[in-house]
């Protein structure tokens, strides 16, 4: 079976490529609790520990808090997603 990456245009293929490509970009991090964090990804590691900048905390889709710098311990992370809107535009 081929690994057909036919629709990945500007995006990447493997998880490793994905991780390289999202550093410094706006991301959405969802925790197991359902809370979302939106901000600029500063760095992350193999445990999915994450450091973020200009972080906004969303509970049930509502902005609850803002943090300049935030560290999220990886065990709480459900997923990391790219965010289409840039933080500068949206915030």
């Amino acid at each position: 079976m081929s690994s057909g990456g036919e629709k990945g245009t500007a995006t990447t293929k493997t998880p490793a490529d994905f991780l390289k490509s999202i550093r410094g970009r706006p991301v959405v991090v969802k925790l197991n609790s359902g809370v979302d964090y939106r901000g600029i990804l500063a760095c992350l590691d193999g445990y999915m520990n994450i450091a973020m900048e200009q972080t906004e905390e969303y509970v049930n889709g509502q902005l609850k808090n803002k943090y300049g710098d935030a560290f999220i311990r990886g065990n709480n992370v459900l997923y990391i997603s790219t965010s289409k809107r840039t933080l500068a535009d949206g915030a």
Binding site: T12, V28, N75, Y79, I80, S81
Partner: peptide, 11 residues
């Protein structure tokens, strides 16, 4: 809807 994500395998 999300474009691309890295999903934690724990759950």
């Amino acid at each position: 809807k999300l474009d691309q994500i890295l999903l934690n395998g724990n759950n």
